[in-house]
């Protein structure tokens, strides 16, 4: 059973955060929350999203799992204006999802969840550094790095208590220094890892610029990026595997 009403903005924020990594996903319709966990086909980037029942105007679910084509669902959500409400009702018999937006009805055929890639386990990581910054600071570093390279280095300097976003191109380099005074918070620790900009750019697209982003970082370890949306009732964690130096 699944019956819910949610604002178009909240739904769009949720779907956008997942669609940057995968085309199809399983949605877990738990009693207390709507959640998605997915990993890209190369097993490099992962997203873990939860949207609390309280983020919906109304929400009734009993723990079912549905499989959806995210692009199709985004297209439907795109038919709503900002501030519109979107109604969902799952037809258990036909395994179709009825979606209503301001007089428009759409019946979405679901995908067999067993045919979708298995949800990943989240690796247990002990990441020694934590940086809390604004989405637009991260966006600035990623945008600049993308001008010169395909890779981006995220680094914490324990001595100077600063976070660095760096990129080295064939001819040009980029270096954004964010001191502990520029940041919302910094727990300094040994942290220096290189990442593919293709992935990080996609994740960055989904991160609201005005939101607070927490970055957990280690040395040649995956980075975790967390942020909240839907007034703190939605949580996204991205995890991205690093590129490591060849021996």
């Amino acid at each position: 059973m699944f019956k819910a009403i949610v604002s178009a903005d909240t739904l769009t924020d949720a779907l956008d955060s997942v669609s940057v990594l995968v085309d199809e996903c399983k949605i877990r319709l738990n009693e207390e929350e709507f959640s998605i966990r997915a990993v890209d086909p190369a097993n490099v980037g992962m997203v873990d999203l939860s949207l609390d029942a309280a983020a919906f105007e109304s929400y009734e679910a009993d723990g079912g799992v549905i499989g959806v084509n995210l692009g199709r669902l985004q297209d439907i959500a795109g038919m709503a204006n900002s501030g519109d409400l979107i109604r969902f009702e799952l037809d258990e018999e036909t395994r179709k999802l009825h979606i209503g937006i301001d007089g428009l009805s759409y019946t979405l055929a679901l995908i067999d969840p067993d045919s979708i890639r298995q949800e990943p386990d989240i690796p247990e990581l002990d990441l020694p550094a934590q940086i809390v910054l604004e989405g637009n600071q991260l966006d600035r570093g990623i945008t600049a790095a993308d001008m010169v390279s395909d890779h981006i280095s995220l680094r914490v300097d324990e001595g100077s208590e600063a976070f660095y976003i760096e990129a080295e191109g064939d001819t040009d380099d980029v270096d954004l220094e964010l001191t502990s005074e520029d940041l919302i918070d910094l727990t300094a620790g040994p942290a220096d890892s290189l990442f593919s900009l293709d992935y990080l750019k996609d994740m960055n697209k989904a991160i609201p610029k005005a939101t607070e982003v927490t970055v957990d970082l280690g040395e040649e370890f995956p980075v975790k990026l967390h942020y909240e949306f839907a007034e703190g009732l939605g949580h996204v964690t991205y995890m991205l595997a690093p590129r490591i130096q060849s021996e």
């Binding site: 990993v39 190369a42 097993n43 490099v44 980037g45 992962m46 990943p120 690796p123 890779h151 290189l194 593919s196 995956p222 995890m239 595997a241 690093p242 590129r243 490591i244 130096q245 060849s246």
Partner: peptide, 8 residues
């Protein structure tokens, strides 16, 4: 020069 790792 660098190798993309996987989360696994």
């Amino acid at each position: 020069p660098t190798r993309q790792t996987g989360l696994a």
